[in-house]
């Protein structure tokens, strides 16, 4: 089976040392300072609900795994200050000191769930109808009432949560403008395909450009695309993302649930006596280590660029003529020697 071509491989980071060392393949080390300047989400009501992230990662579509791993994962996310989209119920059995920043989603044409909303730190109004499996504004909201709805949800949830909108990454400019005019706290862009297309990158770049044109250059943009490597996450940051979903990266590292060992017959006792691959604690420790390295890798870039999504292309070069033409990214210069 051939690997899916990755469009992000056509992009290179010009100034970052990061691209030379991928923490996922073992040889990563960074000497970046610990004091990163975090991006924040400031509620437009002006109340003290600034959410500071130590770097630009977020978990969006990961189902809670078995209990031991779930607690360990939440502890890691909490330590790394990585937010996660999950239900309030999934955190009921967790100790208070391992609960990370929680985001929740409100879907189109569906009721609001008060307990979910009022206990969330971030609320995303996602323009996706789960029943019909298609994108579109909720009938009662639409573009024209979005600003009022955002205000009401913000108030209805106590005024402390950041309220954003989720759109497809290829959303048209009118929808994006409606969000910007609605004074949202963040925007979430989701890719629709299993791999990253040129349209996804063009869409992200166009939305960031539109934010700048509307005097909201610093609007946090969450990007949900299937990325697996730290370098690719950084490239998305350079293209205008503020937070990148690490769902695909994380799913591959979460320990799989193991079926009960039911070997019988000859050799069964011998099989049982063999050491198992690793205990839950070891799996969680390995996951925590990988997450720490990933966070450090992205933070390293973050320190260099100060804030994601602003300088964008200053740090990018491309070997693809198509990306050069579509996005205006400078072409990678061939070395003369």
């Amino acid at each position: 089976m051939s690997a899916e071509p990755n469009l992000l491989d056509e992009l290179f980071i010009a100034n970052g040392e990061l691209l030379l060392c991928d923490p996922l393949h073992g040889d990563f080390s960074t000497n970046s300072p610990k004091s990163a300047s975090p991006p924040g989400i400031m509620n437009s009501l002006g109340v003290s609900n600034r959410l500071a992230f130590s770097h630009s990662l977020i978990v969006r579509n990961v189902s809670p795994p078995e209990t031991a791993t779930w607690t360990g994962l939440c502890r890691s996310l909490k330590n790394q200050r990585i937010p996660i989209y999950t239900s309030a119920a999934s955190m009921n059995d967790l100790p208070n000191d391992v609960i990370p920043t929680r985001c929740c989603q409100v879907f189109a044409n569906a009721p609001l769930d008060a307990p979910e909303l009022t206990t969330a730190d971030l609320i995303e109004i996602e323009c996706f109808d789960r029943r019909l499996q298609r994108w579109g504004w909720s009938a009662e909201i639409g573009r024209q009432r979005l600003a009022d709805f955002v205000t009401a949800v913000r108030l209805g949830c106590g005024g402390n949560a950041a309220v954003g909108v989720g759109l497809p990454i290829t959303a048209n400019a009118l929808d994006v403008q409606a969000c910007l005019d609605a004074d949202i706290d963040f925007l979430c862009l989701t890719g629709e395909a299993a791999s990253i297309s040129a349209q996804d990158l063009v869409g992200l770049s166009a939305v960031r450009h539109q934010c700048r044109s509307s005097s909201r250059a610093q609007l946090p943009i969450v990007v949900d695309l299937p990325v697996l490597a730290a370098a690719d996450m950084v490239k998305l940051l350079c293209l205008g993302a503020s937070l990148v979903c690490i769902d695909h990266w994380l799913t591959r590292r979460l320990p799989k649930k193991q079926a009960a060992h039911k070997a019988t017959g000859l050799g069964a006792d011998l099989l049982r006596s063999l050491p198992t691959a690793s205990s839950d604690e070891e799996k969680v420790a390995a996951l925590d280590e990988a997450l720490t390295q990933l966070a450090a890798a992205v933070r390293c870039h973050f320190d260099q660029t100060r804030f994601a999504g602003d300088k964008c292309y200053d740090h990018l070069r491309t070997s693809s003529l198509a990306l050069h033409k579509m996005l205006g990214i400078p072409l990678l210069q061939a070395r003369s020697d």
Partner: peptide, 28 residues
């Protein structure tokens, strides 16, 4: 817009005048 949204106390509130969109959202 959003007048009395999220109010969650057993108050009796009489509002004199017209209100905008999404008034009383999530009120209890």
């Amino acid at each position: 817009s959003g007048i009395c949204a999220g109010i969650d106390q057993a108050l009796t509130v009489k509002v004199e005048g017209a209100v905008g969109n999404f008034a009383c959202l999530l009120a209890s």
